[in-house]
Design a protein around this nucleic acid. Structure first.
Length: 236
DNA sequence: TGTCGCAGTTAGTCACGGAG
DNA sequence: CTCCGTGACTAACTGCGACA
């Protein structure tokens, strides 16, 4: 389970490493934890069911590519309880390298906005486990991106016309995927959340909206369609 | 070349942590 | 205490590649 999470799109995004492949690798004792992935041999992979040269090469390439993933992706991939995609990103804002994050103490972590005692404790616990530390060292040897001292600041592109605005997406959009819409909004300074509340500014409703649509009506939150969204975002 | 199964993708739902 | 949003889980759908 942990390996699958590590390989998932929001973490290290290793294409071709799904449940069936992982099951086989574990059963054949080729991998025990996430770090073993980086020491797999081509022949090991070819020996698996439904896996010939083409797939093996694709998988090896995907594993190799994953080494370059950002520190936030890696932290999320480690699967620390209560630390998901968003919290991982928050963490890298305060700790530009994995080694700094590893040394964080409880008081310091609680100070961070969006991290409370539960999450802080879970992080401390994670780095206390010898097994986790050993995995991290193996990942370091494999050459993964552990972050850089100087935080790379994201360039502010253009005007932040959606600064402070909160969006919720529901239904299927025609011209974007959820991820694209989310990126557009955050580049313009807005924020996308998963649930509708009083503080939501816009609910963007696409095809087949879900329960969020009803909730928005109940809370009298402004519901807009895809066209209106494009106007607000300044897309022709 | 067709079939089948795996993996990727997207979205919905809800419990629970954080904050005030 | 209440409210909000994140994290975690699930389901449905789609496309690709192995295999024969």
């Amino acid at each position: 389970g942990r390996i699958g999470h590590f390989a998932s799109r929001d973490a290290m995004d290793i294409e071709g490493l799904g449940p069936a492949v992982i099951d086989q690798l574990v059963e054949k004792d080729l991998i025990k934890d996430i770090s073993d992935l980086y020491f797999l041999k081509r022949d090991d992979l070819i020996s698996l069911e439904r896996m010939a040269e083409k797939s093996a090469d694709n998988l090896l390439k995907a594993i190799e590519e994953s080494k370059k993933k950002s520190l936030a992706n890696l932290i999320y991939g480690l699967e620390i309880r209560y630390v998901g995609v968003h919290t991982s990103e928050v963490i890298t804002r305060y700790y530009p390298t994995l080694d700094k994050f590893k040394k964080a103490n409880l008081e310091e972590l609680i100070e961070i906005n969006e991290i409370g005692p539960k999450i802080a404790e879970s992080i401390i616990l994670f780095f206390k486990e010898k097994e986790n530390l050993a995995i991290i060292e193996r990942l370091r040897r494999a050459g993964l991106n552990f972050g850089q001292e100087e935080e790379i600041r994201r360039k502010e592109k253009g005007t932040q016309i959606l600064a402070g605005k909160q969006f919720v997406l529901t239904g299927t959009l025609k011209d974007f995927t959820r991820a694209q819409a989310k990126e557009i909004i955050s580049e313009l300074g807005g924020r996308v959340t998963g649930s509708v509340s009083k503080s939501t500014d816009y609910v963007v409703a696409g095809e087949d909206p879900g329960s969020k649509y009803q909730k928005a009506q109940k809370l009298s939150v402004l519901i807009i369609n895809e066209e209106e969204f494009k106007k607000i975002a300044g897309i022709a």
